[in-house]
Design a binder for these strands. Structure first.
Lengths: 343, 343
DNA sequence: CTGTTAGCGCTTTCAC
DNA sequence: GTGAAAGCGCTAACAG
């Protein structure tokens, strides 16, 4: 039980009877033909024995890079982002990179400076589903000479904007809408997330566009915060508004759909017999509800890994091309043919 | 649009016509009575103008501390851990610390080395709800001379173990059990998470202990993985087993309770009329379901902030006392008096 | 009040 | 094949 200070590479060198440079070479794995096999294994043995771990701060300082990426997400309450992280971390690990998660405290507002809170030194940033100006708080990100940036699930159309990796959310909404139309629905209400981000704007536009060409289709829309209670209230308004009652509630997310289901039942109606409800995201929540939600599955891991790959390319001086990943409609029990109107 | 290299404190010093030390003093906020007000503001102005940001790697190297803590959690799919993070990050920020999240990839298995993946240099570790040996993979953590460690929601009884901050999970289970007993239930099934951690062991023991003294009370138990489908299957077994059918399903978590509700309905029974179902954790899922779940609310933020405070005390050379935070039963629609047995 | 200096632990030429 | 030395950007003694 000695003082147990953390050994430095110098300590290892001394203990092994070699120079610090040799230790660095051996432990860095770049000693082929520069250090003898015997010396190398001796160094590894002593390093092991002393419990040596390189000082990351020193290494970063010397190399000028940290081999760490920051993943900025709007919230952690959603397993989509957990899967995003897995995908990104997997690819990162293959390249000797780490990923640090930074949940933007404001959810959709401007991110606070991660140098203040997730104060890790980082080489680049991956930001997902952020509001337009949400990265303003993060110094220099994406700007010329600033930190390299890749945006996920964000507006790809900015001319000089950062590289993007996107989901085909518009297509997802279109698939849901088609599915409901095919079932025979004509009176739709869109339960829209009241969040000013690209991903939700696209959804609203896609519903409207898809329904625009359908004779007899009517669409109302209610905006609400991204929680069950707000969704329930909004769905209540949609169902009890003036005009004929919608037979399909198309929701921007599974959480909203959960609220919508409660609203339907609150009015003494049934899902899906009286009103069909569709979700989006296909979280585990979609299968936890009864009936299970028809929803749109998002390839979260793939988005994460593609995002990380794009960032690595960026760090390599390349120019990653924007990409869009397909999404898939999952039909479950919450949607059905509309009931015949009773007299 | 010049080359735009990141300015160093030396660049700021040169531009402001002062020495590097003065810049450090001013920007470090410790110049009272050592640098003139005029010089100070001049330095700040140039730093601002050049867009200077201190190099954290250099600072860490110099100080020997990173002012960063690692928060190890078993999974991110759960908003409990999001709230834990908020609590910890809040206290950390007040002390100029950052928090880096590390989702242990294995969930409940041994954590992989965060120096490899979340490779941030850190001063200490807060680990929540981990299996006994789950931290073995993280070099040196908690060991003598190693990284300071605080455990949350973990066995506090180890004699030489790390400081702990715990939830009164046993008491929570006791409250649920009492609630169900008061409603008149006597035939219980415990839907237990098949995860070998302290928190779940305590739950199992608490149900058994509370029911042990009640005449006529019977308890069966089913173990299952922490997901809806597994819970549904397990609840099915509990409801359809030999012997009289339980009237109350006491679940180790809201996710399990969701599966249990589906199982009840799958048998043509109703919640809560035929079978009462209780959850635990009080996630937003509890209010998303219909009927809403009776559950136990956990003060996640407080656990996070208390954990961070304990770690700070540890870093200060102190010895934080183990603490236990109270939990609260939230009665909602999923529990009711048992139906009279029909002939 | 301000400047000079040393050194944190590491990697990387360059010389032997 | 191996060692010596320089320097990444920062802070904290110490001198002036």
């Amino acid at each position: 039980m000695t003082g147990a200070v953390r050994p430095t590479s110098r300590d290892v060198a001394r203990a092994a009877g070699v120079s610090q440079a040799t230790v660095s070479l051996v432990l860095g794995g770049k000693w082929r033909g520069r250090v003898s096999e015997r010396t190398a294994s001796a160094v590894r043995a002593t390093a092991d024995e002393l419990g040596y771990r390189p000082n990351l701060a020193a290494r970063s300082l010397r190399l000028g890079r940290t081999r760490t990426a920051l993943l900025v997400v709007p919230a952690l309450t959603n397993e989509y982002f957990a899967r995003l992280y897995s995908g990104a971390a997997g690819v990162a690990a293959e390249h000797g990179f780490g990923v640090v998660l930074y949940p933007s405290p404001e959810g959709v507002g401007p991110a606070r400076d991660p140098f203040g809170s997730a104060r890790a030194a980082i080489d680049g940033v991956i930001a997902s589903s952020m509001a337009a100006d949400a990265l303003a708080g993060i110094g220099d990100v994406g700007r010329d000479g600033g930190l390299p940036l890749v945006m996920l699930d964000s507006d790809p159309s900015a001319p000089q904007g950062p590289p993007t990796v996107n989901l085909a959310v518009g297509d997802g909404i279109r698939q849901v809408t088609r599915h409901l139309l095919d079932l025979g629905h004509r009176r739709f209400a869109h339960l829209a997330a009241d969040v000013d981000t690209w991903t939700f704007r696209v959804r609203a536009e896609a519903v409207a566009a898809e329904l625009a060409g359908v004779p007899g289709a009517v669409l109302t829309s209610e905006r609400c915060a991204l929680d069950v209670a707000a969704a329930r209230a909004a769905a209540g308004r949609a169902l009890d508004g003036p005009g004929p009652r919608p037979t399909a509630l198309l929701c921007d997310g599974d959480v909203l759909a959960a609220g919508a289901c409660k609203a339907v039942r609150g009015l003494g109606l049934r899902v899906p017999d009286d009103v069909s409800v569709s979700g989006f995201d296909d979280l585990s929540l979609a299968s936890a509800l009864d009936p299970e939600l028809t929803s749109v599955r998002l390839p979260a891991e793939e988005v994460g890994s593609a995002g990380m790959r794009a960032l690595l390319e960026l760090l390599d001086g390349g120019t990653p091309r924007p990409s869009e990943l397909p999404v898939e409609l999952v039909v479950r029990g919450s949607t059905a043919r509309p009931a015949r109107r009773r007299p």
